[in-house]
Amino acid sequence: MKAKAWITAFRLRTLPLALASIGMGSFLAASEGNFQAGIFLFCALTTILLQILSNLANDYGDTINGADSEDRKGPQRMVQTGQITLAAMRKAMAIFIVLTLASGIYLLYLAFGIEWEAFLFFFGLGLLSILAALAYTAGRKPYGYMGLGDISVLIFFGLVGVLGSYYLYAQQLKLYLLLPAMSCGLFSVAVLNVNNIRDIDSDKKAGKYSIPVRVGREKAVIYHWFLILTGIVAAVVYTILNFETYWQLLFLLVTPLLIKNGLAVASKKESHELDPFLKQMAISTLLFVCLFGIGLLI
């Protein structure tokens, strides 16, 4: 029973979304002949560990701040239900901080060796990522409760995830890579937006002022369409700027899934009806990245 509780707390269904950004960075690097298997493996491992840490911190933080009350419509957290104690969760968070740092340090060694300037810069980014994971719902002033979760997801699941992983391979950056990075970031924010629309009533009671709580459901749906459509447009513009073959448009095959998600968010009013579309948006994002990458490599 305890093992099942921990697996639930890890929230494994969030991992495909976490891998999307480093997948995009890896595909972009591979299209230029800069892919390295070791870097990819430890980049993926570090990302998975960081995402699990974020999920544990979210379980812990939402419980102590009251967001995971009996009013919550989404899947309940393990601390809130009493299946994992606060002390055990704090210990698990400490373990995953250590594991994330260990994996991340070895990743940076693989990428940069003893080139200390780049090593220390990315180590600083890693520490910021860990702090962002912890401070989202935990701590005295969790920024997720102030409506800043969206910008954090855009930065870490988009810009830092894509551009950072690309740099580990290529050790250079190009301005137009901001476009696929923005696509990943915007689709990731859309996943969070589905979650926040689903939880709008319980979040309001708990004092968690997400974007949907602040602007209301109707405007949150408009915002959702903006995220989806802008993400598609950014990918199309990148492809036009770097066009070589029509295979590069392969990612457009995921458009019907993204449109389906937008229509569901607009039409389904009950929280339990929205929950499957959180997972659907996350999988659609990963599929978008895979098709985008395959189009670059063919």
Rank of each mutant, 00 (worst) to 15 (best):
V160H: 03
A170W: 12
G164Q: 12
A170E: 15
N193T: 08
G207M: 08
G161E: 14
A181T: 03
A135W: 01
N193R: 00
F156R: 13
L173N: 10
Y167L: 07
I151F: 10
L148M: 07
A138K: 00
S210I: 15
P180L: 10
A181F: 01
E218D: 09
S202F: 03
P212M: 14
L178G: 08
I151D: 01
N193L: 06
A170I: 11
Y223D: 14
Y176S: 11
N195S: 15
G185S: 06
I155D: 08
R140K: 02
L134T: 05
Y136D: 11
P180F: 07
H224L: 02
I211V: 12
N193A: 06
F187T: 01
V191T: 04
L177S: 10
Y166D: 14
Y223F: 15
N196F: 08
L154E: 15
I151E: 03
H224F: 13
Y169R: 04
L179K: 10
A170S: 14
R198T: 07
K219N: 10
L175W: 14
R198D: 04
A138D: 05
I151C: 05
G149R: 05
G149Y: 03
L178M: 06
L168D: 01
G147M: 04
V221I: 14
L178Y: 09
F156M: 07
T137D: 06
P212I: 13
R140F: 02
A170Q: 11
V215T: 04
N193Y: 03
Y136W: 11
F157G: 07
Y145G: 15
E218R: 13
L186I: 12
Y145C: 12
V191Y: 03
S188R: 00
A181K: 02
K141F: 10
G216A: 09
I200E: 15
L148Q: 06
F187P: 00
V215R: 06
G139N: 00
L168F: 04
E218L: 14
K204I: 05
V162R: 06
P142D: 02
L173Q: 12
G144D: 08
P212V: 10
V213Y: 14
D150K: 02
D150M: 01
L154P: 06
G149M: 02
R217A: 12
L175R: 08
E218H: 12
A181S: 05
M182D: 00
L192F: 04
M182K: 02
I222E: 11
L168G: 00
N196D: 15
V153Y: 03
A170R: 10
N193V: 04
K141P: 04
Y166A: 08
Y136Q: 11
